[in-house]
């Protein structure tokens, strides 16, 4: 799913100079099936985005039109619908508030591992990080392995200073919900909910880009 995030990041970097939010939610059942909901929220910068969308390019970057954004989202949805183990794909695009979200169901968490890379490849965007997910219904261990890619920082450093500002206030939120309570959670940034059935990590985008923040996590559920 990180691939999607970067796709949107690039879009954001192309067209605004204020902050944004990325929210990734995964609901996982005991049998390994589940749902994903990914949201990119540019609402806090909607004034700037609205005015920038009137332009052809800004800071030397081409500004995508609303039609282009809609078309690319449709292409992503079409790709997801044809992906193995992925069903119930839907998308929401609120161009009033500039909030975009994609949700779908999966048969196995491993189904989403290669999707992000392939979607980015399809959109001719180089993937700049890699994440893989696994869950064992036997051991009840959910794992997210996140590997920072130096390319992310290289690409970031190539951006113009005013575009870099986009990432300073940007946040990334990741929420995993389970049917069973969490007994162990390894990431020190993670917070466990009162019900013990959800884990949340909230961090700044800049930390992910420069590799200072690691969002890898190993969550063991009670049996």
């Amino acid at each position: 799913m990180k691939g999607y995030l970067y796709l949107f990041l690039i879009l954001v970097a192309c067209c605004c100079s204020s902050c944004f939010q990325i929210v990734e939610e995964i609901n996982l059942s005991d049998n390994g099936t589940g749902t994903v909901n990914l949201t990119v929220n540019l609402s806090q910068s909607k004034t700037k985005v609205a005015s920038i969308l009137l332009l052809d390019s800004v800071n030397g970057y081409k500004v995508p039109s609303k039609q282009k954004i809609q078309k690319e989202m449709d292409e992503v949805v079409a790709y997801l619908k044809n992906s193995k183990g992925i069903t119930n794909v839907s998308r929401k695009l609120d161009l009033e508030n500039f909030v975009a979200s994609v949700s779908f169901s999966f048969n196995n968490i491993s189904n989403i591992n290669n999707i992000s890379q392939n979607v980015l490849k399809k959109l001719k965007v180089n993937a700049i990080s890699s994440s893989s997910y696994s869950f064992s219904p036997v051991t009840h261990v959910f794992e997210r392995n996140y590997a920072h890619n130096k390319e992310a920082l290289i690409q970031y450093n190539k951006l113009k200073p005013q575009v870099k500002n986009v990432f300073k206030e940007a946040t990334y939120t990741s929420i995993y919900r389970f049917e069973l309570p969490v007994s162990v959670c390894t990431n020190p940034l993670a917070k466990v909910s009162a019900s013990k059935k959800a884990v949340m990590v909230r961090t700044g985008m800049l930390g992910l880009i420069n590799g200072k923040t690691n969002i890898s996590n190993k969550i063991t559920l009670s049996k």
């Binding site: 929220n41 609402s43 806090q44 508030n97 009162a194 949340m200």
Partner: peptide, 16 residues
Amino acid sequence: EVSYKSYEYNEENFET
């Protein structure tokens, strides 16, 4: 003053 959309998460299960 301008309005914008954001998210809050409940403590119980981080419902958005």
